[in-house]
Design a protein around this nucleic acid. Structure first.
Length: 801
DNA sequence: GAGTTTGAAACT
DNA sequence: CAGTTTCAAACTC
């Protein structure tokens, strides 16, 4: 199966195909001339095809995409799967494959997506390597199908291949080739056969393992998303170079392997999600693969990391902004890069989303849903600079990047665009992950996302917390619901139904505030008002950017935390523990606390309740009955041992809790905590408070600011409450547990009176003794905490570096 | 859809 | 900082 041989084989089948009437017909259809197996330059392939999309985008493509999108939503609908499979089936006519694909698809769209992502990436990387995409692609698809756990991915891979090919314009040719190959019994034939056999096996395996796979989906999802995000990041990076490099490396290796039939192809394919597979199945790289795969993985990881770091962490500000825009554009142009697959996916979704947005008026849900799209927004045409124009969909995740702060900082269009992209990107994974994976999977993602977002955000907007919260919640819910939020009320209703998605898409109804006050949800959320808003005399529009920014500054001068997420979640700040915290009710708390008197904190009047978090010490509510956690919760004085136990339990929870189910989890956790004899309140509250403001290390500045300014809020509010003292110990623990990074920030923040806020004293008011906080937090239990941290769900989830 | 309730935000 | 007013969301009918 050496390369030369392959080439020969490939050439043969191609020629045959070319002769076939089907091929001719296809050719007639597609603008792309079936270049006779002439090795086209990889770059050209991508480039050439990139231009073609229009042709293929025709109804079929669109339909396909939509179907696909629908599929995502309707996992169980077989018919759709079938329809969708039409396109996909083109490529894979194999019954076995098709079956698998449909089934798999139905079983878990997301899982598939994840695989798809991996696959797509692989494809991208692989494509360039092969002189003729066709040959390589088919085998790949097959192999995928045949491939390991990737079986699941098979359908997806196929579909994607189709999509890609369609867009690229190569797909058409591909299909025929496949069939022909089978007919010819050429190399591909073998592949098919093997693939089929393998697929069947896989099917069985899959069938058997499916559940397990699904169960593992969380991990996978996380992984996938992580990968996607990485990939996306890679794309984003102004220099696609890394991606290219990666591709190149892959290609190189691939070529070295001669693209040899199955194993190598599989290897290549697996590269994308090999990690996932490994994770899932525990399956190590295949014999031959191992070394190479490892290398590839390493490269990929490095790239991803680097990319992430560079893009996200790096200098989000200037470089990133430009980079983003550039990257996006480049990405579009550079379809062939390894991220291409992802982009395609995203595009598909995005298109749908955009349509919806356009049609419906921006629906936050759609945007959210498609966050992935945004990720992929980079894709071809769609990557329009989403300037925060009035038209642009504003639905941003509250905490993420859309904050006006970010906007202000990044006044540039590109930057804004980037931010949105990032936010969406970030959110996407979360949403998806959340949906499928009940467990920890999501958290890591969230954390990463949040952290990434935080890092990225030009402005240290919020902690990732809000993002996580919103994203997870909203996204998850919204995904299903998406579009129809036309009327504000309906929207609200949905939000309510959804649970808490509200934050994601705010639509205001302001009449007197001109949407320039915090009364305006849009303004408060840091987003511009959009069509769906029913506001009057709205100044919260890009047109009035100056006014908005000025007002914003003014408000911030008054209260630095004014635009910070109201609900702070620990997750992002603490990578490791973040999971825990995020999961645990305690992790999230309203930054300022509520002041409810009549609603008993059981209605959305209560911001805590609305945010899906329990009331905390900071709350001055009366008759609190917040189902997410009462402020008074029994403040039980716990012994250190108990506290430790709690911590452990929390850590444990962290590992397993689903972000999606956050609320449920929260309630559960609280219950658990209570059950564990730990009064949920004190601990939880204390924690959130501390962590909240300073979720990410990167945000110190903001946290500091917020802290200082926030003092007013935090100081003195809760003095009335008795339980605080007890809580302190836990609080201290929390602090300790919290990563050092956070702690310092917190401490720093605390140094100011404001810090005290979080440190809440046992007595109601956040008398935060900075000293206490400082003293306790960093040093003491850091050891333990470190241990917990060492467990970091996120790292573990990640493909490993 | 109109009116009421509620509590945050803004103001004094 | 406390008290009051304004505002818009949440809620009810």
């Amino acid at each position: 199966m050496d390369t030369p041989e392959k080439a020969t084989q490939i050439a043969t089948p191609l020629s045959k195909f070319e002769d076939s009437p089907v091929f001719n017909y296809i050719n007639s259809l597609s603008p792309i001339k079936p270049v006779k197996s002439i090795p086209i330059t990889q770059t050209y392939n991508s480039l050439n095809f990139s231009s073609l999309p229009s042709i293929f985008t025709s109804p079929h493509v669109i339909a396909h995409r939509e179907t696909r999108f629908l599929k995502r939503n309707n996992f169980s609908d077989p018919s759709k799967a079938g329809s969708s499979s039409e396109n996909g089936n083109k490529v894979c006519t194999d019954d076995g494959v098709a079956m698998d694909a449909s089934q798999l698809y139905d079983n878990s769209a997301q899982l598939q997506e994840n695989f798809d992502t991996g696959v797509s990436i692989e494809e991208d990387s692989v494509e360039p390597s092969s002189d003729s995409k066709f040959v390589i692609e088919l085998p790949r698809a097959l192999k995928y199908d045949c491939g390991s756990p990737g079986c699941n991915s098979t359908p997806c891979s196929v579909i994607e291949a189709n999509c890609v090919s369609e867009q690229a314009g190569t797909s058409a040719s591909v299909v025929p080739f496949v069939e022909k190959d089978s007919e010819n019994g050429s190399f591909e034939d073998e592949v098919h056969l093997q693939g089929a056999s393998q697929i069947e096996q896989k099917k069985e395996e899959v069938g058997c393992d499916w559940e397990s796979l699904i169960s593992d989906a969380q991990d996978l999802l996380i992984f996938n998303y992580h990968n996607e995000s990485e990939a996306f990041k890679g794309l984003i990076q102004k220099s696609m170079d890394p991606g290219e490099r990666f591709c190149t490396s892959l290609v190189t290796q691939f070529s070295q392997n001669d693209l040899s039939g199955e194993p190598k192809l599989q290897m290549v394919d697996s590269v994308g999600y090999s990690q996932q597979h490994e994770m899932m199945e525990g399956r190590s790289a295949q014999p031959g693969e191992t070394s190479e795969l490892k290398e590839i993985n390493e490269i990929e990881d490095n790239l991803a990391n680097d990319d992430l770091n560079n893009c996200l962490t790096g200098n989000p500000s200037e470089n990133v902004g430009d980079e983003v825009g550039v990257c996006v554009q480049d990405a579009c142009k550079r379809v062939p890069t390894l991220h291409r697959g992802m982009l395609r996916r995203c595009l598909d979704f995005e298109r749908v989303a955009r349509r919806k947005n356009l049609n419906d008026g921006s629906n936050c849900s759609s945007s959210i849903i498609l966050q992935s799209n945004d990720e992929t927004a980079s894709e071809d045409n769609q990557l329009l600079p989403l300037r925060p124009t009035s038209d642009s969909p504003r639905c941003m995740l509250p905490g993420i990047g859309l904050h006006l702060n970010a906007l202000t900082l990044a006044s540039q269009d590109n930057k804004n665009f980037k931010l949105e992209i990032f936010s969406r990107q970030l959110s996407l994974p979360t949403s998806t992950s959340s949906i499928h994976s009940p467990e920890s999977g999501q958290e890591p993602v969230q954390e990463s996302l949040t952290s990434a977002a935080a890092e990225r955000d030009m402005v240290p907007v919020d902690d990732g917390v809000p993002l996580a919260e919103d994203a997870s919640q909203t996204s998850a819910y919204l995904v299903g619901e998406e579009s129809n939020l036309n009327s504000p009320k309906k929207k609200r209703r949905r939000m309510e139904l959804a649970g808490e998605s509200e934050s994601a898409c705010k639509r205001c109804n302001c009449k007197k505030s001109k949407c320039l006050k915090l009364y305006c949800e849009c303004f408060a959320a840091g987003v511009y008002c959009i069509e769906p808003c029913s506001c009057q005399d709205c100044f919260n529009k890009p047109i009035h950017e100056d006014t908005v920014l000025a007002t914003r500054k003014q408000i911030e001068s008054r209260n630095p935390l004014a635009f910070a997420p109201k609900v702070i979640r620990n997750s992002d700040s603490v990578p490791e523990q973040g999971d825990e915290s995020s999961k645990t009710p305690a992790s999230a708390r309203h930054k300022r606390g509520c002041n409810c008197k009549k609603s008993s904190c059981l209605k959305k009047y209560c911001e805590c309740y609305q945010g899906g978090v329990g009331c905390s010490i900071n709350c001055r509510c009366e008759g609190c009955k917040n189902t997410f956690g009462r402020k008074d919760g029994s403040a039980i004085i716990e012994t250190e041992a108990e506290q430790e136990e709690e911590e452990e339990s929390e850590a444990f929870e962290k590992s397993g809790v689903d972000p999606i189910l956050q609320r449920t989890e929260i309630s559960n956790n609280e219950e658990q905590n209570q059950g564990s004899a730990h009064p949920t309140t004190p601990l939880q509250f204390s924690r959130p408070l501390v962590q909240l403001p300073f979720s990410s290390k990167f945000k110190p500045p903001r946290s500091l600011l917020s802290i200082g300014s926030s003092t007013a809020f935090y100081t003195g509010l809760n003095y009335g409450k008795p339980s605080i003292l007890r809580s302190q110990p836990k609080f201290e623990k929390r602090l300790q547990t919290a990563p050092n990074e956070e702690m310092p920030e917190i401490l720093q923040g605390n140094s100011s009176p404001g810090s005290g806020v979080k440190t809440v004293s046992p007595n109601s008011k956040r008398v935060s003794p900075p000293n206490n906080v400082l003293g306790s937090s960093p040093s003491r239990r850091s050891g333990r905490k470190l241990i917990l941290q060492s467990i970091p769900s996120f790292p573990s989830l990640t493909p490993q570096h």
